[in-house]
């Protein structure tokens, strides 16, 4: 009798505890829901760069990709741009590239910014925010590391240092 009571109570408490734990977990991960998920394939997209050349993410399979979302008004984005540029030059022949997606700004604003910082990597124009919506981008800058199989291996939001960028790019080197 006593054993049975203990069992029933334990089972009920476990069930309730599991429901609470799930709710808390779901609540804290709800902002990541449907966002491109680490460990899964990066949502494919195709965007034009400043020269009108089309870049399709799946065409980059076989090499590592640093996918960076940025805006010209965003200070931390601006700060990490020179680092990205340096590392782009270092890694471009080692099979890791950088794709920098600008979020729906005017061509002029992007061009002036790119000229000012002598950016060499392709800057993609997400004119109607489609890719931004697909990746559910919140605060900028947001950086995804995609490996040679097209899988997301890392996500970072906030400014990156040059060392961090180097480290990230090493990780996806084919």
């Amino acid at each position: 009798m006593k054993k049975k009571r203990l069992m029933i109570r334990a089972v009920i408490l476990l069930l309730l505890g599991a429901a609470v734990a799930y709710t808390l977990y779901a609540n804290f991960t709800k902002d990541d829901v449907q966002k491109a998920v680490v460990g899964e394939k990066a949502p494919d997209f195709v965007l034009e760069d400043m020269n009108g050349k089309k870049h399709r993410l799946s065409d980059y399979e076989g090499q590592g990709v640093l996918l960076n979302f940025w805006g010209t008004w965003c200070k931390p984005c601006e700060k990490e741009m020179p680092y990205l540029n340096n590392q782009y030059k270092q890694f471009k022949d080692k099979g890791v590239t950088i794709l920098a997606v600008n979020v729906a700004e005017s061509e002029l604003a992007i061009q002036k910014f790119a000229d000012r910082h002598n950016l060499e990597f392709p800057i993609l124009k997400d004119t109607d925010s489609q890719v931004m919506t697909a990746y559910k981008i919140g605060p900028l800058p947001a950086t995804y590391m995609i490996d040679k199989e097209g899988k997301i291996v890392k996500y970072h939001t906030g400014q990156l240092t040059e060392d961090m960028i180097k480290d990230l790019m090493e990780q996806v080197k084919p």
Partner: peptide, 18 residues
């Protein structure tokens, strides 16, 4: 949506059941 608020509401739920 803070953890402690959710925990409070959840505790009310558990208290109700038990």
């Amino acid at each position: 949506s803070s953890w402690w608020y959710l925990l409070l509401v959840a505790s009310i739920g558990i208290s109700l059941v038990i």
